[in-house]
Write a protein that binds this DNA or RNA. Structure first.
Lengths: 216, 216
DNA sequence: CTGCTAAGTGAACGCCGTTAAGTGACAGGG
DNA sequence: CCCTGTCACTTAACGGCGTTCACTTAGCAG
């Protein structure tokens, strides 16, 4: 019962203003409910002050609306991570700051993160367009950051940047994902965890003197 | 249309046999649909050969039934990972084999994994009982495996086994989770990825000579 | 055979996402 | 000033969902 039909009809040619209002409202309800299934089209329509079919004038279906919400939330994702990475000149420290920013951003937008990165796989019928995903650009920038670290001689030469970036992404995502889905686990402090994992991946958990072989 | 009411009423005292039949059927439909939402109680009842209310004689609600399916699928999880870890005497190699087994088990039971480890956080009202989760025992065993590796002098002394185990878990989960949710990403071969991440976490991505400091 | 009770069924409730058809207001032309 | 087209929306409904309640039927003990 947030706003029950106070809305006045839009003027001619301004029908698409409703699109924005719906998006804002859906985002608010999604954040409040922390669960897309618990946000019904009817509830969104009610909160906007409109009837349910009006939503379909602007969004094909519920999934499209929810995805629009998530994509807008994550529009700033790449930029935030990039900015965090650019606060230092040390390419390895930069990677650590990127990881921190990644995890924090996910935790700040948990349901959106869950829908975008932890949802059910798209069917073979309508596969996700990876290139349009908000995270794609961020991943490309991560690959570049890895290349800089290798180029600076701080990571082992010969490492494949793509493979390294994929591994770093998986590690950051793993922390984010588990923190979102299993909050009752006795997690250490988030930054402690992120720093530990970055430290592990940079310097290794193994004793240097026990090192068997360093692959190229 | 898999089996439309061929079922004969159970004998007296054997009502709980239906419980197992429902569980088997729900598991089958869940695997087929790869999506719990797409498996309706009515569809399960139909496939069993029974009416929907009968399910509620054995399971409180749909969530309880689906969770029962997932928990049964993951009953063998800890054992599988342990067995994989016990195929070598080298404690570090053992960790790598555990990671491989973890990821593979998740990929073999993707929807169950997604529900158990990538679901929405339980509300504050009814928090998940972590100690009863199938993964809890596996995590404890992972902590022990880490302790053995430290005890054998293969990992840096002074490392906190719990923190290390949490980081390894996050890394393994991150790969599993992303592989499940974003199959259209150009993933490297799964074992290549797992091995790379394990290698990174063991020996580090950094050049040994560039090492700054080794935290205790 | 009778009666008890376990093992189900039938029918309904209120919700959901979605669609087809209808309506009313407003801008522009005559 | 009124007519008319069309844009912005509503009304009403469909089929499906999880779930509940009242009811019935079938197997067994006595």
């Amino acid at each position: 019962m947030t706003a029950v039909r106070p809305r006045t009809r839009a003027r001619r040619g301004e029908g698409s203003k409703l699109r924005e209002v719906i998006l804002d409202t859906a985002e608010r309800l999604l954040i409040e409910a922390r669960d897309a299934d618990a946000v019904s089209m009817r509830a969104i329509a009610d909160a906007v002050g409109v009837t349910p079919p009006s939503i379909y004038l602007h969004y094909a279906d519920k999934e499209a609306l929810i995805r629009a919400v998530c994509e807008r939330s994550f529009a700033a994702f790449d930029e935030v991570v990039e900015r965090a990475g650019n606060t230092t000149d040390d390419p390895v420290e930069s990677l650590r700051r990127r990881a921190r920013a990644y995890v924090q951003f996910g935790l700040d937008n948990p349901e959106q993160y869950r829908i975008l990165f932890m949802g059910k796989a798209a069917g073979v019928a309508d596969p996700i367009d990876l290139s349009n995903m908000p995270g794609s650009l961020a991943f490309l920038h991560l690959v570049e950051a890895v290349e800089r670290a290798i180029g600076a001689g701080l990571l082992r030469p010969g490492l494949e940047p793509f493979l390294v970036a994929t591994g770093l992404w998986a590690a950051a995502h793993g922390m984010t994902s588990l923190l979102i889905s299993l909050p009752e686990f006795p997690w250490p402090d988030v930054d402690t965890l992120v720093d530990h994992v970055c430290e592990s991946m940079t310097y290794g958990l193994g004793r240097p003197d026990q090192r068997k072989q360093a692959q190229p």
